[in-house]
């Protein structure tokens, strides 16, 4: 699987209800060293309920400027949350009979929505 299999994918709950789109992937560098960097590990998916456009990184912090771009983007992306990768039940293959059409990500029942902001 590569990152673009997940980016823009529709996110479904276990019962098939759509909750949004994957707008970004959150990676952590905590693996064994590979060259000069630690190997990245997929920590979770940033899911935006209303739009699959980019959030321009505003999900990472609580920056409110410049007006009016930041408030506008925050409005479009309100309700954006982070799901941890272990809460993803499965990512059906493109030829999956249950999920024809565009890529989807199916979440585990009882998954948790986390704040997408990065805290230091």
């Amino acid at each position: 699987m590569i990152a673009s299999d997940l980016l823009d994918a529709r996110v479904l709950e276990a019962d098939g209800q759509a909750v949004g789109w994957v707008v970004d992937l959150r990676l952590v560098l905590d693996g064994t060293t590979d060259g000069i960097l630690a190997r990245p590990r997929l920590h979770g998916l940033v899911v935006s309920p209303r739009t699959r456009t980019s959030f321009l990184g505003f999900e990472r912090s609580d920056v409110r400027s410049p007006w009016p771009i930041a408030p506008l983007l925050r409005r479009w992306h309100r309700g954006t949350f982070l799901v941890h990768w272990p809460d993803v039940a499965r990512v059906p293959e493109p030829d999956d009979a249950d999920h024809p059409g565009p890529a989807v990500v199916v979440l585990r029942p009882g998954y948790l929505r986390y704040d997408a902001t990065l805290h230091r």
Partner: peptide, 11 residues
């Protein structure tokens, strides 16, 4: 976990 945010009138 995130609380849902109120709509912004300014926006």
């Amino acid at each position: 976990p995130v609380p849902s945010r109120p709509r912004s009138a300014t926006a």
